[in-house]
Design a protein around this nucleic acid. Structure first.
Lengths: 234, 234
DNA sequence: TGGCTCCAGTGGTCTAACAACCTTACATTT
DNA sequence: AAATGTAAGGTTGTTAGACCACTGGAGCCA
């Protein structure tokens, strides 16, 4: 089998260049971008193509356009939230169960590996995250952030780049409904306790225990999704 | 809080309408959307505005545009996930041993699930691939293609989109060196035999056996990599 | 100071046209 | 009959140029 000759479209290439500008720091959050006409001239393309590229950035919340004023790079560093609103209605409950199944497979093994390989530094990080999680049981939104961070820390401790990026990608999908799972009464407390069990197992270096604790945690999540109101499935 | 004073832009309104079409079920996953010109006429706007709206949907992976063919609604969460995954994998790539470790974790469970869920059609496909593989033990290049196809067939039979895309992405990383692993003397025969064991286990519906057979296969691959010259490991 | 007009800059939208590309059907060659 | 080449129609990709609507500021005037 040969490689599938990919031909990038103009707006796609423009998007790439814009990304570069952001990554390199040439464009900083809050900055005003050059006018569309200027951009089209610099890039040697039509204004239409530039606008389509900008339209894509707008969709994922990376830029903000103000008529008569100009185009601005989002000052907010978490533009991912806008994307979730856009795509949420596509993620059905059935798909979510697939996602949880994948998490069960990958994350249990990640916990296993973490118990095997975690350094003191890794453990400190996890403990700090758990601390913050405990203090924020009341406020769902930031609790969720620490929840995600904890799983991320485990993946880091497992020392496998491939699986780390895999979990990262999955987490992005999951983010959109994570909130509803966590917001149920009694859920944060339960979740906090389960995360603690995972941490203790990893700290002890007990692979099987860590694996099992993670499985228990994800099974709870799975149950929650199965019991989600039907309105949310589409 | 006073007046939000909403002045929606044309593409934004179009996006809203498209969302409605999706939610209401008028447009189903995989469907081909009407041509841009037709949409612009129906909506009473220019093609430019329609294209900007579509550009936004493309950015978040909800639609796929094929030149000369048309615009299609994403069939499932797979495109969303694939987008996430590819962007992450572009940045980082792991060493070969990391890749094999990831494969051991994901593919053993995939074999397990395949043994649980494979239909007759799935099994037929696998058998056909194995047949071709057997006939091509001599020629490394096409042998490798069937090898990859077999693993892909298992992932399909496991009925989990997320893991399927994950394995796809990993396979892409692995492809570059797969050849060197297979080209060793005696390797195709051994590999063919191990693949057959996996197939038989799945056909029997024996989950544990399938899982174990896959693990045996990947362990062989792992050994081969460990014995490879150092330059090729990264 | 306060309000006014005017204006240059900017994004929003449209039109019409051509290019690049895919599929299908048909004709040609072998 | 099978493989190959060709033409046509439909579709997205891209462009140029034009006009509109809105914003901010400069400068004018009471």
């Amino acid at each position: 089998m040969l490689k599938p000759v990919k031909k990038k479209t103009l707006p796609e290439e423009i998007i790439e260049q814009f990304k570069q500008q952001i990554i390199s720091g040439n464009w900083k959050p809050g900055d005003r971008l050059p006018p569309e006409r200027e951009l089209s001239e610099s890039l040697g393309v039509s204004r239409t193509s530039v606008r389509e590229a900008l339209s894509a950035f707008t969709a994922i919340g990376l830029i903000e356009v103000r008529v008569g004023e100009g185009t601005f790079l989002a000052s907010d560093i978490a533009p991912l939230y806008k994307r979730e609103l856009s795509s949420k209605f596509l993620v059905k409950r059935g798909s979510l169960l697939e996602v949880v199944e994948a998490r069960k497979i990958v994350e249990t093994q990640l916990a296993y590996l973490a118990a095997l390989r975690a350094t003191d530094e890794d453990l400190n990080k996890m403990e700090k995250i758990l601390d913050n999680m405990g203090k924020r049981i009341a406020s769902q939104s930031s609790f969720m952030e620490y929840d995600v961070a904890f799983h991320f820390a485990i993946a880091c401790a497992a020392r496998n780049t491939i699986l780390l990026e895999t979990i990262n990608a999955i987490a992005e999908l999951f983010r959109s409904v994570h909130r509803e799972v966590v917001e149920l009464p009694g859920m944060p407390q339960l979740s906090y306790s389960l995360h603690n069990q995972i941490y203790e197992a990893i700290k002890k270096g007990s692979c099987a225990e860590a694996q099992e604790a993670m499985m228990k945690h994800l099974s709870v999540v799975e149950d929650r999704i199965k019991n989600m109101p039907l309105d949310d499935k589409l």
